[in-house]
């Protein structure tokens, strides 16, 4: 992703110790960050519990919503390892990309991906029946893996918790549905993966339902 090795960026480098907080949820933010080394955990308090949304790696960008305008952070960012970040204030953004059009291009790519992922998620969330949501999460996971041949049985690396997060549902509800699919022989359920016999089937069901609801 984005690697900016030039000494020009030295003055933008900030370092964080393991477990150190970079910014917290709801804090107004004017900077965005590019990870040079180390991992960053993105967490959010949901129902009085800290939930990890993502663990970002070198080359990843976060806090990018601050590029446009000051806005409260939607999650907290915490260093997992000793981490080196490039920190850019919104005011420097124009000058920054003027001198580094390459980075601007990379940001375009990142935004494109994020928009798609968010839209795809929204498509799942907008389905009304819980079964369809769970099916569509599996569809999405299959779409995400370029090596998957949709014609045959496929293996999706995921667990119930992840499916529940994507579907915006309770784990217990998701588990019931997946167990049901399992009993029907449509899927085989493991701790770390789900085998789907015929993902085309799921795609057809979801698509037809989506069309009819429009």
């Amino acid at each position: 992703m984005i690697q900016l090795e030039s000494p020009v960026f030295d003055k933008f480098t900030v370092e964080f110790a393991p477990n150190e907080l970079i910014f917290c949820e709801f804090e107004p933010g004017n900077e965005f960050y590019i990870i040079q080394s180390g991992r960053i955990r993105i967490v959010k308090i949901v129902n009085n519990t800290e939930k990890t949304l993502d663990v970002l790696k070198p080359g990843d960008v976060f806090g990018e919503m601050a590029i446009l305008e000051e806005e409260p952070r939607s999650a907290s960012a915490i260093a997992v390892d000793h981490s080196k970040l490039l920190k850019f204030h919104r005011d420097n953004f124009d000058a920054l990309i003027q001198g580094n059009p390459q980075m601007a291009y990379k940001l375009l790519v990142i935004f494109s991906k994020r928009i798609y992922d968010a839209k795809r998620r929204l498509m799942i969330l907008l389905l009304e029946e819980p079964q369809l949501k769970v099916m569509d999460v599996l569809n999405m996971l299959a779409e995400d893996d370029p090596h998957i041949d949709m014609q045959g049985p496929i293996i999706l690396r995921c667990n119930i918790q992840e499916v529940a997060n994507w579907a915006g549902m309770q784990i217990s509800d998701v588990q019931k549905i997946l167990t049901h699919f399992n009993q029907l022989g449509k899927i085989e359920l493991f701790n770390d993966r789900i085998h789907v016999k015929n993902i085309r089937d799921f795609q057809r069901v979801v698509n037809s339902r989506r069309k009819s609801s429009v």
């Binding site: 806005e71 990309i97 601007a104 375009l108 935004f111």
Partner: peptide
């Protein structure tokens, strides 16, 4: 680069809207 900047603003606005809906 100005085209990129413009696109970035459009994209980030879009992302914000979708995020809000989510």
């Amino acid at each position: 680069i100005n085209v990129v900047k413009k696109m970035l603003r459009v994209f980030s606005n879009q992302l914000r809207r979708i995020g809000k809906t989510v």
